[in-house]
Computed example of a mutant assay.
Amino acid sequence: MEKKIAILRGINVGGKKKILMADLKSMFEGLGYSEVLTYIQSGNVIFTSENHITETEMAEAIEIAIKNKFGFDVPVIVLAAKEIQNTFKNNPFYGATDTDISKLHVTFLADEPEIELLNKIQALDFSPDKFDIIGRTVFIYCEGKYHQSKLTNNFFESKLKTSATTRNLKTVKKLCELSQ
């Protein structure tokens, strides 16, 4: 059995796409997952899977289940617990002596970006905000508030042609702790 983390995009934000965490947990259990644990209302689910399917296939099954149960579309990204733990450890902006953890965010991508798209986006400069893309992960440093930055889910989705969802580094750290 392997620990997984599902990260849902855009639920319980501004009163839209409301899902109670107890209902989400129940839905995951109904899909055959065990040791289901939710963390905060923004759609973070830690679970154990015995399924021998890929994370992409899991995400698609969860998206279908959410549509069937709650009646709306929610993009889902599923990661192995080890992957999110490596994401936290390998953050290029974390650990600098002058870095405030509240300024750090991680955008998770559904797919690894194509090289051409990656080259185009890496040529862009949004100083003082910065980003670095490694695999399916975008590491973000925002000098101000994240919601004021141009480095949003919509920005990365349009430039990289894949689904994305973002969490602050404090949430990523907690998901690492809960998934051990």
Rank of each mutant, 00 (worst) to 15 (best):
I84M: 10
I84T: 13
Q85C: 07
N86T: 06
N86A: 09
N86S: 14
F88I: 04
F88D: 00
F88T: 02
K89A: 15
K89G: 05
K89V: 11
N90F: 08
N90Y: 11
N91L: 03
N91H: 13
N91R: 00
N91D: 10
N91A: 02
P92A: 01
Y94L: 14
Y94G: 00
Y94I: 05
G95M: 04
A96R: 12
A96G: 15
A96L: 13
A96W: 07
A96N: 13
T97A: 14
T97Q: 11
T99H: 02
D100C: 03
D100R: 02
D100H: 06
D100P: 04
I101S: 09
I101R: 11
S102Q: 06
K103V: 08
L104N: 01
H105G: 03
H105P: 09
V106K: 01
V106S: 02
T107P: 04
T107N: 10
T107V: 10
F108C: 03
L109E: 00
L109W: 00
L109Q: 00
D111V: 09
D111M: 09
E112D: 11
E112S: 12
E112Y: 03
E116W: 09
E116N: 10
L117R: 12
L118A: 06
N119E: 14
N119A: 15
K120A: 07
K120P: 04
K120N: 12
K120H: 13
K120T: 10
I121C: 08
A123K: 15
A123R: 12
A123F: 13
A123D: 14
L124H: 08
D125S: 14
F126Y: 15
S127Y: 07
S127N: 02
P128A: 08
P128D: 00
D129E: 07
K130I: 05
F131L: 10
D132R: 14
D132G: 10
D132P: 05
D132V: 11
I133H: 10
I133C: 04
I134P: 03
I134C: 05
G135L: 08
R136N: 08
R136E: 09
R136I: 05
T137I: 14
T137F: 03
V138P: 00
F139E: 00
I140D: 00
I140K: 05
Y141G: 06
Y141F: 14
Y141C: 03
